[in-house]
Computed example of a mutant assay.
Amino acid sequence: MAPPEPSRDVAPAAVPDPLPRPFWVRNPWVWRVVALGFLSFLVVAAVEEVRSGDPLALKVLVLSLMTAYGAVYLAVLPSEVASYRDARTVAVLGTLGVVLVALLGPDSIGLLMYALVSAATTLPPARAIPVVWVTCAGMLLYTGLVGDGPHWAEVSVYGGTALMLVILMSLRTAVFALREANDEVARLAVADERARLARDLHDVLGHSLTTITVKAALARRLMEAGETARATAEITDVEVLTRQTLADVRSTVSAQRRASLPAELAGSRAVLTAAGIEAVLPQATDEVAEPYREAFAHVLREAVTNVVRHSGARRCEVRLGPSWVEVRDDGSGAVVGSAPGTGIAGLRERLGPLGATVHAGPAPGGGFLLRVSADEPATAVPA
């Protein structure tokens, strides 16, 4: 059977996009095209001014202000997501609009719609909405005092359009924020899967390869001693364990492997015995609560592997409780000041969601103690 293909980093790209972007969002230049078309109202106003009977100096001033007004309007509009501009730039545009309306009279009040649109699309909503309301109120007051009465209908259309643009820009910004969050979730999912795979492979291969090494060494000693039958049995165990390890690796890669506490107890007894370490293990696991059984199986696998590989112990004792497990040996213990290995770190990651704490350190009277408990606060192991 061919080995499973290695994991690749294309998981996020393979996931369908839950927030597809419409054309006008994917291409910000569309906003510029719409803005240019919207300037047609300003062009019409400029043509009317040219045809008017105003003095030449006034025409030149008004046309110059209109040109500056349109240029600032195009410069202010955002070209990227949530690229809110400085309020001072919008204030310059509003000032130009107010001057134009003051020169041309109340019938030109519609020119202020450019200032409203710019405020609605370039200021944060908390600032844009008050600016829209104040501008609309000023437009009504000006047309009421200088003109033939407040232009309710016209100002209502401009104000309503501006407020809808505020909502549209807020939704546009929210969509992009959700997309960024979705990309971050996909990235974290890949990182979590990598961490899970590394942790599970460490558990599987560390324990299994240690057992294979111990049994192979025992078989060699038995062959040297002429005990061919026992050596053959140990080699047969190595063959079975190798096949089981291969199956465990495949199950781990496909996230289908589940650890069994009774099976780990039996395996621990076999590997400790093969290593010449006295195994003091419980006969049953019924006392352990169901939520902790799989996690404690991983704890037992990691602890026994460390005892065989590093401790130099002659005796290893395992104790189980409803929500705790304890593994103690009489070996050389941990080196003072040494950092915990990747196995202990992996246990802490695995047991974190269960609210369990991991205590690892020198045991009273010598040796090493690993205790995992879900009903105790995190305290140092007594030295």
Rank of each mutant, 00 (worst) to 15 (best):
A360D: 14
V175I: 12
P55K: 05
T305K: 04
G331K: 04
A225F: 07
A339V: 12
M164I: 00
L19Y: 10
H202E: 14
F38Q: 13
P282L: 05
V98Y: 01
L96D: 04
H359G: 10
W152C: 00
P12G: 09
A334H: 07
V44H: 10
S108W: 11
S83H: 13
I129S: 11
A45C: 02
V327H: 01
P362S: 03
R51N: 09
D237S: 14
A363T: 00
S373L: 08
P22C: 06
R269P: 00
A87N: 03
G366L: 01
V101H: 03
A274K: 02
A14Y: 02
A345W: 00
F176S: 10
A266T: 14
V185P: 08
E49M: 06
E193K: 04
R319S: 13
V25M: 14
G343Q: 01
E264P: 02
R258M: 09
S323I: 09
D286G: 13
D183V: 09
S83Y: 05
V98N: 06
E193W: 11
V30N: 05
A217P: 03
W133P: 00
V214C: 00
D54G: 10
G147P: 08
L145H: 03
L241N: 03
A378W: 07
S118R: 02
G343P: 03
A177Y: 05
L209S: 12
E317C: 02
T236Q: 14
D17W: 01
P291G: 12
L201M: 15
Y69C: 00
R371L: 14
H359A: 15
L112C: 04
A231T: 05
E290M: 08
T67H: 09
D86N: 11
P3N: 08
D329M: 02
L265P: 06
V60L: 15
I344W: 05
M1A: 14
A374Y: 15
G341T: 03
H298F: 09
T89P: 00
L165C: 07
L241Y: 06
V175G: 06
A284G: 11
E80F: 09
V190S: 13
E326K: 07
V249H: 05
R258E: 10
G147K: 04
V131C: 01
